[in-house]
Structure formats: structure tokens, C-alpha cells
Design a protein around this nucleic acid. Sequence first.
DNA 1: CAGGTGATTTAACACCGTTAACTAACGACC
DNA 2: GGTCGTTAGTTAACGGTGTTAAATCACCTG
Lengths: 197, 197
Amino acid sequence: METIERKPRSREQTRSGIMVTAKTIARREGWQAVSIRKIADAIEYSAPIVYEYFDSKDVLLNEIRNEGFSYLYQEYDRILKLYRDPEKRLYEISLIQWDFAQQQPEIYQVMYSLEGAYCSMPVYQSDIVQAVSDKVSEIICSFIPKSKESIRRLFFEWWSISHGLISMAMMLKDEQSIEMSAQVYRETMRRFVRGLK
Amino acid sequence: METIERKPRSREQTRSGIMVTAKTIARREGWQAVSIRKIADAIEYSAPIVYEYFDSKDVLLNEIRNEGFSYLYQEYDRILKLYRDPEKRLYEISLIQWDFAQQQPEIYQVMYSLEGAYCSMPVYQSDIVQAVSDKVSEIICSFIPKSKESIRRLFFEWWSISHGLISMAMMLKDEQSIEMSAQVYRETMRRFVRGLK
DNA sequence: CAGGTGATTTAACACCGTTAACTAACGACC
DNA sequence: GGTCGTTAGTTAACGGTGTTAAATCACCTG
């Protein structure tokens, strides 16, 4: 039997409200300013309510991280349906990575524990991260089928180069124009993709 | 009559003791476990004493970060005296970056605000970071003299690729052998250096 | 009406960074 | 000797954190 909704919000609404609020505060004031009490205030509840939805702050951050990887997974899928050429595919996926980091920096930060957005759970223990890795690895493999080991190395290299340029651009955003960083990113990723064949 | 059990230490000794202790705790338990009180306990003083030496925790972390960049500066200098070939120079400097991150991960973390080692002060405002940047830029310039803008882009690219591989290797250290990461690092940096001429 | 049940809050604990107020020891001067 | 100022070091406190146990309140059922 469905209970009557006293509050105009369903359980799922409240849950996602907590996540949205956390991200909003993080975007405005940085992750280190995100506290359970501040989130509770914003959603007009008391602090312990947050623990009805998330076992700890750590799992809340982990959920947001997974949300980020999940979004990337979707977008990668979209690209795979749009293009057939492996070169085009990998390059477009690289661009998605960049755009994502620009448009939702607070999520990107929590995904890689950047700028005080600490999440103790290791990334690789998440299924969605594994799925994203597999998807990209597959594209690299479709380039030139190589040994599993080689594919793994190339994926590691692609991921690292992309992440390195993105995180460094974030770090230097106040002294180096985003447009210049974006140019270097595009050139570098294009060169990497070309170098694969 | 109870005597003072605390060893008489000079001001400079105490100061560096604080920094060493902070790094030791960070190495053992991670940066998020480093607190002023814990440091004070370890050096057998009360918490406010730490503030006699550092205005805030932020300043303390910034000092440790600068110490890290200062070490790199020294090592880069050593390389410049050892080799004349620009290609060799840049490659060796890349290797120093890697070794440093492996041997003193806690310092590397605070240098780039990784893994909860948050330091609010922006890196580029530090003179020593500027000096390190200039040194590497000079080497890149000695390769093929190009426009200031091009040098800047190449330095940004070198720094990002190196940092990307290092931070990703750190992140995946429990599921991907360091030796494999090191191999990819060496190959990638070698390829980058070769590509410059 | 009484009782139970689930949602929600209050109060508390043990920490955190940071600062003000206090104490104990020491040397200088009268 | 006694009084002062200085200094090193402490304790105690403030407002904040994540987290949990206990208390409260609104509602449905018997």
C-alpha cells in the first residue's frame, strides 16, 4: 500500500535533490565547502535525513562520481552510433571528455579526487568505470587488433594524456586561456589518434 | 622535581620537524588524516605552537608544495650540467618527474591537490613554480627556437602528458603494475621528445 | 481513545582549524 | 629580597565537521 505523501517530494526526488544540491554547492564554492549540514539546509531537512539516503558523505560523493562516468558511457554510445571510422570515433570521444570537464567541472573533480573533492572509494572498483574502459578499449582494438596487453597500454596512454591535459588546463585556467588549452588538447588528441594506425 | 623532558630544539629544527611530521602522517595515513593536533602531538607540543611557525594549515601545505618544486628545480639543474643534448635533457627531466612522484608521492599529491591533499593557494602564484616552468621552457626552446607562444604550448603539453601519466598511474597503482605504467611513461615521453625535432 | 509505526528533529560525540586568555619561568632593575 | 616585563607554552573556548542515539511528532489502526 502506497503511503500518502505528506511532503510534496517523493523519495527519489529527495535523493536526487541531495545530489543536485551537493553539486550546486561544489560548483559555487568548491568541494571543500560541501557539508552534510549545508546540503540539509538547502533541501530544508535536518542533517540526519541525508543519512536516510546515503550511508555516508563518501558514498554520496561516489554516487556523483558514478553518475559522471555513466553520463560519459551514454555519450560514448551515442558517438559509436554516429560514426563508423575508428579514428573519428576515438577523436570524438576525446572531445566529449573535454566538453564534459568544461561544462561540469565539479563532477570531473569528484571523479578524479581533484581540488579537495576527496572520495576514498577507488575508481576501478566501480562497474560503470569498467564498462567505460571496455568501451574505449574496444574502439582502440577496432583500430588495429593487437594483444590484450597492448590494448590495455594504449587505453592507459589515451586516458592519461586526455586527463593530464584536462586537469592541467583546469589548474591553470586563470593564467592560460581556455581556448588555447582547448587547441592544444584537440591537436594532441588528434595526433595521438593518427599515431595509432 | 620534574625536569623538562622535551629536548631543546632550535626554532629551525622545530619548524622543519613540523613539515617532516606532516609528510610522515600523510605518507602513512593519507593527507586527509593530517591534522594540526596530530602534528603537535608527534612533535610533543600543543596545537597552538604550530601557529607560531605557520600562519595556517594552508600555508604549511603550500610550504611543503614549494619544497617539492624546489627539489625538482635542483634536480633539473643537475641534469642540465650533466647533458648537453636537448633531447637527452628533456627525457632525463621527464624521468626525474616520474621518480620523484614514486619516491615521494605525498609531496606530489600536495603539489597538485590530489587525493584530498587540498591546498587553496594556486600553484602558479609561486615563484619557484615559475622558475621550474622557465627552466623546462628553455630546454624546449633550445630544441628548435620557436615563437614564445609555441614554446608555451609545447611546455603545457609536456607538463600535462607527464602529469597525466603519473597521476593516472598513482590512481591505478593497485590494479596495474607500476612497472607497466613506468614502461608506458618512458615510451610516451621518449616519443614526445623525439617528436619535437 | 490507546497504541504502534514511521518520519523527522534534537542532542550529543569526537573530531577539526583557529584564537584568546592564562600560567610559569626567567632576567633586569630598585 | 621583591617587583616588573618578556617570553614560551599551556588550557579553554568558538564555530565548524561527519555521524549516531535518543526523543518527538503525525499519522493509521485496533
